[in-house]
Design a binder for these strands. Structure first.
Lengths: 219, 219
DNA sequence: AATTAATTTTAAGTAAACTTAAATATTTTA
DNA sequence: TAAAATATTTAAGTTTACTTAAAATTAATT
C-alpha cells in the first residue's frame, strides 16, 4: 500500500480518537494538507479496498482491516520516535518529523527488531502508547485532556498529542514537557480557555492547545 | 527530489564505478527493473534538471550536481547499513533491503546524527566506503576484484559488492563473509572462473561472482 | 423555517512515473 | 561490409495522487 494510503488511514484513526471525532473528508484533508476533493476521492478508493466504510456526506469509519493498517503505521512511527529519542540528541519535534517519513519504509521485521532492542516499550517519548505487533494497545492511560482539568488541581503532563512544529516550539518555550508538573489555576469552561501555572509562570492556553495536552492527576 | 530520481542517479553512479562502466539507459533500466523507454524518458528529464548529460544513444554521465546527489544517497544507505548492522541481529541482505528504503527518507540532519553516533565510520559492513557529508570518499581501498586475484595467494574478503539476495544467500552458505580468509587455488583466466578454498572447502565461482567479490592480499 | 454559510461531491484536468509497441539507430558477427 | 541481432528512442496510453471550479448537500444562524 502506498504512503498516501497509509497516511490517509492513519489520519482517520487519529481524528477518530480525538475529542471532536470528526472524520469527514474535510477534516482529514486539512490534516493531510490536501484538497477536500482529493480526500473524497481517496475515501471512495479505500472503501473499494475494504479499508473504510464510505457513505456520502457521512463520517469515514475504518474497517477492521483499515484499523489494523493504521495501528501498524502508528506502531512504526512510535517505535522510530522511541529509538531516535534514545540514540540521538534531537528535539521531539525533529524526531517526530523523521519518524513521519521512516514509518512508511519500515518492514514488520525491522519494527520488531527495534521494539526488541528497546525492550518492547509500551509508550513513546510523547507518552503515546505503542501498539504491539498484533495491533493491541496498552490502555492503562488514565490521563485526561487539559481542557477537562479541574481548577486548583495539580497535574503531570503525560502526552503532547500533536505533530505541529509551532505547538512544540511553544511547549518547549513554556516548560510544557512530558513529565512536568503544572497547576491549573483557572478554568474558563465557556470558551475552554485554561489558565495554568508552570514553574511559577502563569500562561493562558486556548482550546486548540488544552485539547491536545493530556495530563494525569498529581498525587 | 523524488525516490525515482534518487534511485536513477544512484544507479548511474554505481554502474559507472563498475567493470563494464555501461551507463546507457538499457543498463540502468535493468538495474532498476523498469523499461528502457522509462529510462530514456527519465534521462531526458534529469538532463533538464542538470543532474546528468544526455546525448542520444550515448552513455549517461552525471553532472557534478548529479554526482553529489548520488553520493548523498549512497552515504545514507551505507550509514543505515552500518547502524542496523550494529544494533540488530539481521543478515547483510536484510540490512541492505531496509537501507534501500530508508535512504530516501532520511534528512541530512539525521544522517549526520547516525554518523556521529557510529563514530563517523569510513566503511560500511559490506566494506564499501561511506561518503562524508561533503561527498568525499576515503579511497585508501587497496582491494581488488576476485577475478583479478592470483593463483596460490591468500586473500581477505573486503567487499561483497551486490544487492542480490541469491548472491548473499550463496555467500552465507559458503563462508564468503566480510573479513574471512580465502585461498585462490586455481584461476581460469579465459572464462574468468575462479577456484577458491574456504574453510577447507573448494568452491568454483564464475565471473558474475568473482567480479563483485573484492579482496585484499593477506599478509 | 428560511436563508446564508460551509462542506462535500462531481467533473475535468494535471504531473510523475511508469507501460507496450513500433520506428530508428547502433553493434555484432558471419 | 551487409545482414542480423540488439539497444535506444519515440509515440501513445495507464495509474496514482493530486488540483481547481462548479454543483449538490448539509449545517448554522437569525
Amino acid at each position: 500500500m502506498s504512503i498516501a494510503i497509509e497516511n490517509f488511514v492513519k489520519a482517520i484513526y487519529k481524528n477518530g480518537k480525538r475529542d471532536n471525532n470528526d472524520t469527514k473528508p474535510g477534516n482529514i484533508a486539512k490534516e493531510l494538507g490536501i484538497s477536500n476533493a482529493a480526500a473524497t476521492d481517496m475515501a471512495k478508493k479505500l472503501a473499494v479496498k475494504d479499508l473504510l466504510h464510505y457513505k456520502k456526506y457521512q463520517e469515514l469509519k475504518l474497517t477492521d482491516k483499515g484499523t489494523k493498517m493504521a495501528l501498524n503505521v502508528v506502531r512504526k512511527h512510535r517505535l522510530w520516535e522511541a529509538l531516535l529519542f534514545k540514540l540521538f540528541d534531537l528535539s521531539l519535534h525533529d524526531i517526530h518529523r523523521e519518524a513521519e517519513l521512516l514509518e512508511h519504509q519500515t518492514s514488520d521485521l525491522l519494527a520488531n527488531k527495534i521494539s526488541e532492542y528497546l525492550g518492547n516499550p509500551k509508550f513513546d517519548p510523547h507518552g503515546d502508547p505503542i501498539p504491539n505487533a498484533k495491533g493491541e494497545i496498552t490502555t492503562t492511560d488514565t490521563s485526561i485532556s487539559l481542557s477537562n482539568a479541574k481548577e486548583g488541581k495539580t497535574y503531570v503532563i503525560s502526552r503532547l498529542m500533536s505533530d505541529d512544529k509551532e505547538f512544540f516550539d511553544f511547549c518547549a518555550q513554556h516548560g510544557l514537557k512530558y513529565g512536568n508538573t503544572i497547576l491549573v489555576s483557572k478554568q474558563f469552561s465557556k470558551n475552554k480557555m485554561t489558565q495554568t501555572l508552570i514553574n511559577n509562570n502563569t500562561i493562558l492556553l486556548n482550546k486548540d492547545f488544552t485539547s491536545i495536552i493530556y495530563v494525569n492527576e498529581h498525587h
